[in-house]
Design a protein around this nucleic acid. Structure first.
Lengths: 224, 224
DNA sequence: TCAAAAGTGTTCGCTATACACCCATGG
DNA sequence: CCATGGGTGTATAGCGAACACTTTTGA
């Protein structure tokens, strides 16, 4: 009995965080998956995640998971849903608070056990553990919504990027096709882009966070 | 020790659901608050909520809370955030999964203890228990976002309503002012409204859920 | 009969969209 | 020199925003 030393009057569920990590390789949108080393679902792929510690918030937990798998500390991270189906874990009642993270794929370092982490294109996702396929679909839907209110695309691109890369990213997220000329015109018109001096054809651009902060104050909407 | 019969190897947080119930009285957007009868925060106002039962999902829990306070079973309800700050409850670690519900205010029946439930206008909210002021601000922000993707306004209005009521609702949610003529034109153009036959000046309208379902299939966006 | 509310139409400017041409680069 | 990619401009149509007049209703 020594082992079960946390006792409550009423049953409590376990609480975990899961982190859907999105990256962009210049062409396709990708997610980072971990091959599970333990039961249940040993050997199948899943999102990085784990039990919430008592002294950390869910966001801190998700950031911890993100760091352990990518070495990144300061990425964009957003809670998008808590999954609470009583049967979602075969062992016991586990609810998970799910986040998605947007990372610059080239900054990602292999985690402690890099061998078991791998990037997958969204059109080539393997069978996933637990209800993680549902979590992924949910994350994609929320990401598409989010893009209307925040220029989150910039979180997925390197510091400097071409207009074509930016367009391909938006096309990958929204699953649409834009006219190259109109996309460029629209993006430049918004005013969040800053052309990198001295680079010629193809031009490179940087995201201007100052302008973004100003625009957030006044309120704005990105149309697509 | 009989009392604490649920034991775990690791500490588990408590999990609750809270339900921000929005209603519209034809003029102002309101929320339903409960006066707490027990400590902590006894005597202060809070959202309906309570501990998640082991056999129910969070959404079922939130619906249960909604039913207990309003008598309504089939309202629009949406999870918008899990609040997980380790210090948010002074007693112990409690995370809450928060929902907002949109109800037709005239259908609401007093709950079991109706005396302690009361509608408050958003510009006249009393001091709230726990972190519920933060939860309310969060709910409002999500509601405003949501309105761009779904015609949720209709959930808050009676079956039949005038264009003016619809406009006042949108103005209350978004905290903006629309030109009466342009608002009407735009709303009618979207095609979700059906004019009630036989009613004259002011016309009444009904929401057409069939058209809405068709539009959701094809994907659409409500602009404001 | 008078005031307030509600119905309706027009103009203007902006932006989304469709589309074509020129230039630079590299094989 | 030719093909490809990338930079740029223009015409058109549709929508949002501003705005005024007429009709109806009820006090």
């Amino acid at each position: 009995m020594e082992e079960f030393k946390y006792s409550y009057k009423y049953p409590h569920p376990s609480v975990t965080t899961d982190c859907v990590i999105f990256g962009f390789d210049g062409k396709d949108l990708k997610v980072l998956l971990i091959e599970r080393g333990i039961e249940p679902f040993k050997g199948t792929w899943a999102f990085p995640g784990g039990f919430l510690r008592m002294e950390e918030s869910a966001e801190e937990g998700a950031k911890r998971e993100l760091f352990e798998e990518t070495g990144l500390r300061s990425s964009y991270i957003k809670q998008f849903h808590a999954f609470t189906n009583p049967q979602r874990d075969p062992r016991e009642r586990v609810i998970t608070i799910a986040y998605y993270a947007l990372v610059k794929i080239e900054e990602v370092q292999g985690g402690d056990d890099a061998a078991k982490a791998q990037w997958f294109s969204l059109d080539n996702i393997p069978s996933l553990a637990f209800d993680h396929d549902r979590i992924l679909r949910f994350a994609m839907r929320e990401l598409r919504k989010q893009i209307h209110f925040e220029p989150i695309g910039f979180e997925l691109l390197p510091e400097e990027f071409t207009m074509k890369e930016l367009q391909q990213l938006y096309e990958a997220i929204l699953e649409v096709h834009f006219d190259r000329r109109n996309f460029s015109k629209k993006m430049l018109h918004i005013g969040l882009l800053e052309q990198v001096e001295g680079v010629k054809t193809p031009y490179k651009y940087k995201f201007n966070p100052t302008t973004y902060e100003e625009m957030k104050q006044k309120g704005f909407k990105l149309e697509f």
